[in-house]
Design a protein around this nucleic acid. Sequence first.
DNA 1: CTCAGATGGTTGAATGCTCAAGCAGAGTCT
DNA 2: AGACTCTGCTTGAGCATTCAACCATCTGAG
Lengths: 180, 180
Amino acid sequence: MFNHSAILSDMPPRWLNGEEQQAWRAFLTFVARLDDHLDRQLQRDSGMPHAYYQVLAMLSEAPERTLRMSDLARITLSSPSRLSHAVARLEENGWVRRERHPTDRRGALAVLTDRGFEALRRAAPGHVAAVREVMFDRLTPEQVRRLRSLFSTLTEETAPTPGPGPAAPAGRAGHAELTT
Amino acid sequence: MFNHSAILSDMPPRWLNGEEQQAWRAFLTFVARLDDHLDRQLQRDSGMPHAYYQVLAMLSEAPERTLRMSDLARITLSSPSRLSHAVARLEENGWVRRERHPTDRRGALAVLTDRGFEALRRAAPGHVAAVREVMFDRLTPEQVRRLRSLFSTLTEETAPTPGPGPAAPAGRAGHAELTT
DNA sequence: CTCAGATGGTTGAATGCTCAAGCAGAGTCT
DNA sequence: AGACTCTGCTTGAGCATTCAACCATCTGAG
């Protein structure tokens, strides 16, 4: 048996060329700025980190403002552990409540409380303004189109996802767009 | 006197339109994937987080493999505090050493040790492979150009930086490109 | 039915980051 | 010189995230 990773790692690394380097560094710089800006703004004005905002936002769009923990974790791009801790914290604030899943007794549901919805509603305008300030107000509509196109490509499922795939994410509820 | 922020916050928020939403979500998804992928790969294969890799990489390019803490902080896009903690940790590993600044006695210098350079050299191929895997191998050269162009725009200094600006970052040293 | 493995979720320890406070040295003004 | 402020850097506490266990429940094979 050959060790495939050894074979792979024996190939000389393909370093980034000039263009790629520039793209990479500019990208890293922007992401750093962005994370910093968003987290600071939310923490300062609304007392929550960006990750928690996303949890509240996703819940606010869900039917009954309720989602199963595992689904919420997937949607918010966080690990089960991270989400569990986060929801624990949000529960202390009275922004989210846990409920038991009606049929699967392993399951837990996260429910956005009225106070949580209020907190989100107050946080949203400042947040979207911050996003605009750092990103969209610096781009022309044409550039926004290119941006979307690029990152659609980059996030496309590359792995062979046979079958109908994980079904569209349960259509947006009729609420205002508090999701950014 | 009017309260300007009150005036600002009284304007109805400009929510993101459809195109912007799609761009934003795809972007967030990609960044989450990317951070996760890079941090995991580095932690697993080289025992350091991505932020520490960047510290080592920047030092490796500097003359004498040495930088003043404040400069290093700026280059690595981290706060002074963050860098101080990071260097403390790197010092424990024997990868970086602190020295006193020769003329400004407030100053501290971070020096990449030989062991640190070795660690970086071993980490670099896996890291650049990870970056390729998630980003550049999924883009055509034309797309890479657009990417660079977009993020150059987004990271351009917007504030009126009069004068000659903060001088080009001390040209790359002749070392191999371990910076990604 | 029963058992083995998969799935859903939580927990605690370890780590990195942020924030606010603090200290020492350098500049500046009189 | 003396007093003020600014800059450079560090520190400790608090918080978020990760990782590796862990328990409970569900599912499927025999």
